[in-house]
Write a protein that binds this DNA or RNA. Structure first.
Lengths: 151, 151
DNA sequence: CTTGACCTTCACATAAATGTGAGGGTTGAA
DNA sequence: TTCAACCCTCACATTTATGTGAAGGTCAAG
């Protein structure tokens, strides 16, 4: 597919697709006329890139971890210099930290949202609630799922 | 404590502490001489801010979710306008997305690191390995723990 | 053949987080 | 008293991921 289709299917501006290529995150064939030509796997790849970018990783780091995310699992073991490995382990640990931070914060938000919901359900209008949140034994699907950390 | 101590205890440049205050993420008393004075809870607060910033959240968003992370759980329900609630739920969902993306990537890195480790242990020097990674039944503590997502 | 919808490169602009440093006040210890 | 180590504000610089648009090539349909 050409850049326009990839852009549309990934919700990514063309500008950014060229930028990712420039940063070495994405590769493209070139048609005879010079147009970029992408294969089907690029869709997932771009989504990966966007997700990691949105999660705070700079392109420089994404470039290093992208080879780990390719499907044919153990074929890319070739380029395993000690420094590369060290970088990977360091970044893996940083990602674990981010995950923990996000988990804590997300769960706190869920609790908060739930508390407000319960509070409003019982008719309080903007008034503060002194009791603990443990009375939040409600059966609403969506919110309940969120609180318990669903996927 | 003054800004220097807070900076040191959180590993954050003074410049950034003032910046966070400017963005409304952090508050400080002022001593008679104009020096900023911070309470003990600021340490955790700054660490929270830094973690979220590093996880890709802009200060504008962090400012909105920080009230949810305060300890006295249900006291801050006061300022629950519908828009605030909508924002919180939207951001909670984005955080869930980030968590999933980071989890996938981190686990992939762990698998990769593990595969390389096993590969090197059996004496291959930079050569690629064709078999699946399922033979990675090793007992190394650190790596094994990382693969299974420890902590 | 022309028009419109693609594509190319190049370049300048912007927002956000951060670095750096100037110019100047406070304070405690030598 | 003077010096070092803090603190203040202000301002300009940098990096990264983006937005925007100019100037121009390609190509299919009218």
């Amino acid at each position: 597919m050409r850049i326009g289709e990839l852009a549309e299917r990934t919700g990514t501006p063309r500008r950014m697709l060229r930028y990712y290529e420039d940063q070495g995150l994405l590769v493209s064939d070139r048609a005879a006329n010079g147009y970029r030509e992408y294969g089907e796997p690029c869709v997932d790849r771009v989504l990966q890139i966007r997700g990691l970018l949105d999660s705070g990783l700079p392109t420089r780091v994404i470039k290093q971890i992208l080879p780990c995310l390719k499907e044919p699992r153990a074929i890319h073991v070739t380029d395993a210099t000690p420094e590369t490995m060290a970088t990977l382990e360091r970044e893996r640990d940083r990602m674990t930290q981010r995950i923990e931070c996000l988990l804590r914060s997300r769960d706190a938000i869920s609790d908060y949202v739930e508390a407000v919901r319960v509070n409003q359900a019982r008719g309080a209008s903007g008034v503060s609630c002194d009791g603990a949140v443990q009375d939040a034994a409600v059966q609403d699907d969506a919110v309940q799922g969120a609180v318990s950390g669903r996927r």
